[in-house]
Design a protein around this nucleic acid. Structure first.
Length: 529
DNA sequence: TGTGCCGGGCG
DNA sequence: CGCCCGGCACA
């Protein structure tokens, strides 16, 4: 059961340190965490605090052994605690240093051990504490509470009095960092579930969640904030979607957990919609925050190494990481889908999709710290969603084509149509911007890119009312635009649009209200198909 | 039969 | 080029 989580995480562990944290925090199952941590440290030197202790041991061990460990933890399902103990044992046996490490950790004045890596060793001890102190001070407080617990259990607490003090802070920081990151990641569910599922009753969970949420919002949420508010992207459509996706995702990726967690997840409202959404199409990238450094890597280890070596001037070779790198890079999501799709995505859902694009820019600027890449992703993503809820109003542009030079007519609602007959020569948006009449009145024209002549949004309102058949064609119209004259019975002759034309709309009586084209018996420019 | 619009003519 | 209309295709 629990082991599953561990397994899952361990696999993911490389880039998601946070998962462990959550897990641990929620349930205070340190051992598991540790194992994971060790793995991580060996593989990527990510968050050092916890791992540090073991790190030496790991390093000392032959690479094979290391692997075994990591694998072991992952592979041995069910053996959570046992595993750990075993591992520990293993360590001890194979590497004397490991035990030594523990001791050291526990008691600062630890003499013995290590003839091997005295220097580096010391280094670690000193560093972690100090470093951690600076950064995520915010989190510390919150985490501090949890950390202690965690610490105790795993190692025989008796041995580790001292470490506790310093570690906790470090732990917390990094954990939070990791957690934060995680949350923002597409994998967020992984994090969330574990924490919620295991011990619901455990109060720690709540706190932890809170911590997460706070950290999340403060550090990572930037992206989302705009997402939710800016675009007026009515959350309506997206949430459900994301949920669905999420589920599917879970199913595919962690079939095991789903059954249990799925239910739990529902309870876990925390940031639900967003994270999930990301998951689907988001790829996590790590961006170096170092001044003037735009480096973006796909792996945390990579970015850390980058920072460590390039910016921090640390030794490339050593796996050792004091965790400082963590503060110099951030994670960003890249929406793969949107990237591929591109703005031109022909969202079948709504013809108006074209409209939104112009809006994108703003969101971008909003999310200052968030990476542009990610933003792009979202942006492109947003449109489709937006378009649904937010009709074409945004981009309506009334155009008078050559033919119509005459007038901004009063498109108005022909008496016949709505009986509103307000033929006031008012421009589109002005007068009757209500409901149906809006679109109808001013057949909105949406500019579609440069090339595109003009995409016309079919008058949705009154006009259509009269001729129901029109609706179904809407989608087709777009195609027609792309591929003019699909069907040409008589050579180049237009198919003949189904839409109501000026003549029909206004009637012969109001011929003056027709578009010029219609008046001249040319293809209607106002109600284009 | 009504409508949409091409093709063409006129000024 | 603006304007108008004959006439065909289509619904």
């Amino acid at each position: 059961m629990e082991s599953k989580y561990i397994l899952e995480k361990s696999s993911v562990g490389t880039r998601v340190g946070g998962a462990d944290f959550n897990y641990r925090a929620g349930r205070s199952v340190l051992r598991d965490t540790r194992v994971l941590m060790v793995e991580k440290s060996s593989s990527m030197q990510a968050y050092t605090h916890g791992p540090i202790l073991y790190k030496f041991a790991v390093d000392d061990l032959p690479s094979e052994v290391k692997k075994d460990w990591s694998k072991g933890s992952g592979l041995t399902p069910g053996g959570r605690i046992l595993q750990d103990t075993e591992k520990t044992g293993l360590r001890d046996q194979k590497d004397p240093g490991s035990t030594g490490i523990l001791k050291r950790a526990s008691s600062t004045p630890n003499p013995g051990l290590n003839g091997q890596l005295p220097g580096s060793y010391m280094h670690l001890d000193t560093r972690n504490p100090g470093k951690q102190a600076e950064p995520a001070s915010n989190f510390k407080a919150a985490q501090g509470q949890h950390a202690p617990q965690a610490e105790k259990q795993p190692l025989s607490s008796s041995h580790i009095p001292v470490p506790r003090n310093r570690k906790p802070s470090g732990h917390a920081d990094k954990e939070v960092m990791a957690a934060t990151v995680l949350t923002s990641l597409s994998t967020s569910p992984l994090v969330l579930y574990p924490s919620s599922a295991p011990t619901v009753s455990d109060p720690a969970n709540k706190t932890w969640k809170e911590v997460l949420s706070t950290s999340y919002s403060s550090s990572t949420s930037g992206n989302w904030s705009w997402d939710a508010s800016d675009q007026s992207v009515p959350s309506t459509p997206s949430p459900p979607l994301s949920n669905d996706n999420n589920k599917s995702f879970l199913l595919s990726s962690q079939s095991d957990d789903v059954s249990e967690d799925a239910t739990e997840s529902t309870h876990f409202m925390f940031e639900d919609p967003i994270p999930r959404k990301r998951k689907n199409s988001m790829k996590v990238m790590f961006k170096c925050l170092w001044k003037n450094c735009e480096k973006v890597l796909s792996t945390s280890s990579g970015i850390q190494r980058h920072i460590r070596t390039v910016h921090l001037g640390r030794n490339t070779d050593s796996d050792y990481s004091d965790g400082e790198e963590d503060f110099y890079y951030t994670e960003i999501e890249v929406n793969m889908d949107s990237l591929t799709e591109g703005l031109s995505s022909l969202t079948p859902t709504s013809p108006t999709t074209t409209g939104p694009p112009p809006i994108f820019p703003s969101p971008l600027s909003d999310a200052s710290h968030s990476e542009h890449i990610s933003m792009n992703g979202f942006q492109s993503h947003a449109p489709s969603l937006l378009s649904q809820s937010a009709p074409s109003t945004l981009c309506h542009i009334r155009t008078d084509h050559a033919y119509q030079a005459t007038a901004p007519v009063s498109i108005p609602v022909g008496p016949e149509l709505a009986g509103i007959g307000n033929g006031n020569g008012i421009g589109p948006g002005t007068g009757t911007e209500n409901g149906i009449s809006v679109s109808w009145q001013s057949p909105p024209y949406i500019f579609k890119g440069v090339s595109g002549p003009v995409t016309h949004v079919r008058p949705v309102g009154l006009g259509e009312k009269r001729q129901p058949s029109v609706t179904p064609h809407t989608p087709v119209k777009n195609q027609a635009l792309n591929m003019p004259a699909p069907k040409s019975t008589s050579g180049t002759r237009k198919p003949r649009g189904e839409a109501k034309k000026c003549r029909k709309v206004y009637g012969m009586e109001k011929r003056d209200m027709w578009c010029t084209a219609c008046r001249w018996k040319k293809a209607c420019q106002r109600f284009i198909d």
